[in-house]
Design a protein around this nucleic acid. Structure first.
Lengths: 243, 243, 243, 243
DNA sequence: AATGAATGAGGCTTCATTCAT
DNA sequence: GATGAATGAAGCCTCATTCAT
């Protein structure tokens, strides 16, 4: 959940937590509502405004006054919840990351899944993930904006950490079928899958819907193929040929 | 998602690592000019300083006075050659891109190559490219800094355009063997190869040399596998199995 | 020139040393109220907090929120009792001044003393005053803080006025033995005694207890000597020599 | 001499030193010119403006924009020479202190004076000092303003240090005739003389010229008397009686 | 052409004060 | 009365850009 990053000297009154991460992706009623509506509380409003400003006007035009204006609050209110300008971007990033996690989990990429079970249907899950994340990239304004535009060194670290978490999860789920690779290589393989996916989703957003569809298919092929090549090697010389 | 990680903060003028990639590798005309040195003219010095400041101190600390100081010139001199601050980053980006092009061409990824000939030895060329670009990423400070760190919207456009150029070239070289794909899809496939390569090279730089080697191998496998899967499909049911 | 030295910076809630000097020493009415405690009512709590903040964190860090926090009340409550920030410092100053007056009166420096009687034992009373005031300076946090640190122009006026009141009282008590001086000069002499005493008390607080004792003695000598020189002049050529 | 206090990160280009401390007090031509004229260079102009603002509008109204305005320079120029607002006050204080030193030295209170010689004419020198310093207090705008109005904790430390320096000098000059006091007590006596003088000079400035004259006389009497009382004690039981 | 001091608009942040609860 | 979140004016400081030397 979005939560102000605070470093103030004195008594920290943590911000009213902004939750409702799922809201974003829940196909409430069939009609996809414009995500990023007027938020429930001020923190969300401020983060939404941050995303909007970054997206609409760019990093250069991103300043506290602009954000306050867009959020419909006074500048001072920003500092009630965030220690400084940078914290805004950080918090937005974290909120997006957590929303992404939610999306991934709903798509079946979860820690609590039985690895054996997962191995049997990973291709199906991969498909669902691709669709869900593509959707997420399209709708979560903050995500594109922060991660593709102006990540600070700290954010890049956070991003890398998050990638590692996802890679670990992937690794765990494939631990057995990829057992023939050493743990180090297995980890690298998992990381590559995670890392490579990013720009592909980015492409999907950038291009029109028609081409986007093609990219989804190619992403599927690329990732499936890569994983399969490793899985088959583990299974012996002869595996079933891919469709 | 993953991008380059940067950590250093201030001071510590690191080995002025910008090494004029183009010149370095091109024994242009017999007369070897002093390579690996402080740049020959002011513009280069300024761009080198730009890269250094961005790399060592981050986007936030990047300003004209800092650059002038690092470059050993007066602020005013910057404005002799560049209309404004942004132009510095743009120029650095373009210089890096040109150097990358040079590296790619030297590795055999050229427009003037005969497509037929290329088809026969593409895997070998791909390997050479991977090695060469990995090297480039490691050594060209400006490249990492600008492209992996804080690309503005404009730069992202430039980056995308450059990717398109490379994708077109790739597409042309593979025009015949990938003929069974429509031109649109063929273009997408080529673009994906180009786009996906970026973060992989980024990883190579980020991690230690040992793991970097593994990533190179996996990159090879990923890209070869992807291209091969398309190539084989075009060749009929049975293609020669890969080594 | 010399003024109180302050060093501490943040945190470290020191023993809430404000001790309601007036109450402390005045067994007002038989009912002993809890002394040396957190102040009894909000106004006192707020003024105590004002003194603490000024003392511990300095004038720059002195603000209404900080005071409210330290006092354990809401900012709004400050405005229940004080019209604005400045009024806090003013009120603290006045409270300290009143406490000082009380101390002086207890030491025998009173308006209701008979001048004749006073003339006979002024040296003894002066000694008592010096001891009592030195004590007061040491214990009354607010006093040091406000008067020795950053008195505004207005406060300086108040200080000056208070000095005048004390000087008048001194003048009245010495009216007869100093009759040979004109009233104007008599007034100046009295003022000088009062004004000069301030920094001497300041020194006593600043230095260690050993040196403080020496300063007390020298202060005694300085003031006694000064007053005596005028008194003797009035008494004719030959006065009894001092011990 | 006034000199910008700089703490900048990078290459410190010390400000154009502002000298001409003496100018202030030199009775050039009999007519006392309004001291604090338009200064010779920017640093002096800025410090003069600082003094003026502090004096005319008070500490509360003292802000960088106001100073820049008064000095007739851009805000940015202040930061060319001073790291921050506080440094302005510090520098002003130091400039004044150094001018005071100059005045004291011209009045004969110097380190290079022979102690024996000094002992013979100390009363005369004391008179000259009192006159000169009284003059200085009256004319050196910055001095009154900084030392009597808003000294920060740091400034108070500096002030105390300066007092110590003067006290040491005094002690040295009186080393022999006050030999009967231990060094510690001798030091205290000297310090008291220095410390007590401050508020007396302050008074001289505050009151009208008539009363000021009286205060000068009383100051003379107070300090002479105090020093004499110690000197005579050292000289045996019977010393020549003072005039 | 080179220099770098000067400029001043603009951005970040603080904090006195208000006022709805 | 008490509370403390909200407000937004005001102040500090930075830094892109100019221009006299």
């Amino acid at each position: 959940m979005a939560r102000a990053t605070r470093k103030k000297k004195a008594g920290a009154k943590p911000a009213r937590s902004a939750r409702s991460a799922a809201r974003t992706t829940a196909p409430d009623d069939g009609r996809r509502r414009p995500v990023q509506k007027r938020s429930l509380d001020r923190v969300d409003a401020i983060l939404d405004a941050t995303a909007e400003v970054l997206h609409d006007e760019g990093l250069a035009a991103f300043n506290t006054n602009r954000v306050a204006e867009r959020a419909g609050v006074a500048v001072g209110s920003i500092y009630q919840y965030f220690p400084n300008k940078e914290a805004l971007v950080d918090a937005l990033a974290m909120r997006s990351l957590q929303r992404l996690d939610r999306v991934l989990e709903e798509a079946g990429f979860r820690d609590d899944v039985d690895p054996g079970e997962f191995a049997g249907k990973w291709e199906e899950i991969l498909d669902r993930i691709i669709d869900a994340v593509a959707d997420f990239y399209r709708n979560e304004l903050g995500f594109r904006v922060v991660w593709l535009q102006g990540p600070s060194a700290e954010l890049q670290d956070k991003d890398w950490e998050h990638d590692q978490v996802l890679a670990e999860r992937l690794e765990r789920l494939f631990a057995e079928p990829l057992g023939h690779l050493g743990p180090a290589r297995r980890r690298t393989v998992a990381t590559i899958v995670v890392v490579v996916a990013g720009p592909l989703f980015g492409m999907m957003v950038r291009v029109g819907p028609r081409r986007s569809k093609t990219i989804v298919e190619e992403t599927r092929r690329l990732l499936r193929g890569y994983l399969r090549s490793h899985l088959e090697e583990g299974r012996g010389t002869l595996g079933p040929s891919p469709s």
